[in-house]
């Protein structure tokens, strides 16, 4: 078992070609031997583990009941909130109130963003966007909990099979390879343009990040894991998303604290229409774009093979 993992890890770290037939066979035998050992161990331990089994089943039942109660309570709270909302088509509803007019008229003077939507979602409703970015992050986290294959224990054997078709990549197709070599930089450049121009023209962090993520997915499905692992691994994903989320939170908190306490803003609005206008809109767009791009790529890799 241990020897198998060591060989596999060595092979993975070297990032070389596929496992050769001999190696695979030895791994196979090793794996089966490990299984048998485990089975005998279970039969020996059977009587002593009965107590643990009882506790375990009780724990599962209690946790299930608790989660059901929690869900019902959450549903009840949400239904109660919905009952408080105004009726559809009522003249006094929030949609008909002056909020939208205020946004259209005063966004430029308050935030310095020519693109009103960007001003609203990143400035007036900055914490809402922070929540959205975290929702994406949590989605990736839960997908990883379910689908990520670790290069240890059981995972190593799975990986040996999963990674084997990495040898088929890049696909032997000159038209595809050349086309993607031309297209990939253009797609990424376009995504960066959308992100950087978010406070001036339609677009912003979410759409630009989606474009970059799609470009990365295209590159991965054409050139394969060995090429993408040179610049995008689990480590890159972790570092990028963490830095982006933390910086977003910090800058937004700074913004709100200074705004609420009448402290003079250090970062001014700037001249509307230039790229460095709108205070913190540009960095916020970049952070959101990073999170979205990483999320899209991570979701794709998780669903495809279970690792970067």
């Amino acid at each position: 078992m241990k020897k198998r993992n060591e060989t596999l890890l060595k092979w993975l770290n070297e990032g070389s070609e596929t496992l050769d037939q001999e190696m695979m066979e030895s791994l196979e035998g090793d794996y089966l031997a490990g299984d048998e050992k485990q089975e005998t161990a279970v039969t020996k331990k059977d009587e002593s583990s009965r107590f643990h089994m009882i506790i375990r089943s009780a724990y599962i039942r209690i946790s299930t009941a608790f989660s059901v109660v929690l869900c019902i309570a959450l549903i009840a709270i949400l239904m109660y909130t919905v009952m408080d909302m105004p009726y559809f088509g009522n003249a006094d509803t929030l949609v008909e109130s002056e909020v939208s007019e205020f946004y259209i008229e005063h966004t430029l003077e308050h935030t310095g963003a020519v693109n009103v939507i960007s001003g609203i979602i990143l400035n007036f409703r900055g914490f809402d966007t922070l929540g959205e970015a975290h929702v994406l992050f949590i989605a990736v986290c839960s997908v990883m909990i379910l689908l990520h294959i670790h290069p240890t224990e059981h995972g190593a054997h799975l990986m040996a099979y999963e990674y084997d078709d990495a040898s088929e990549e890049p696909h032997d197709d000159d038209i595809l390879l050349t086309g993607v070599r031309v297209l990939f930089p253009l797609i990424v450049m376009f995504g960066i343009y959308i992100i950087l121009n978010g406070n001036l023209s339609p677009g912003g962090g979410f759409s630009g990040g989606a474009v970059i993520g799609a470009g990365l997915i295209l590159y991965l499905s054409v050139y394969g894991y060995i090429r993408t692992r040179r610049f995008f691994t689990m480590r890159t994903f972790r570092i990028l998303t963490t830095i982006a989320l933390i910086s977003y939170t910090c800058s937004k908190t700074f913004h709100f604290v200074t705004g609420a306490n009448d402290i003079k803003a250090m970062i001014g609005i700037g001249t509307p229409g230039t790229i460095f206008s709108g205070g913190l809109l540009l960095p916020l767009n970049i952070f959101v774009g990073l999170v979205v791009a990483c999320t899209m790529y991570a979701l794709f890799t998780m669903f495809r093979k279970g690792d970067f």
Partner: peptide, 16 residues
């Protein structure tokens, strides 16, 4: 430029 790059590529792959 983009459409002329991508459309023949996808057509080629589908026909393959």
């Amino acid at each position: 430029l983009l459409v002329w790059l991508t459309s023949p590529m996808s057509g080629h792959l589908i026909s393959l």
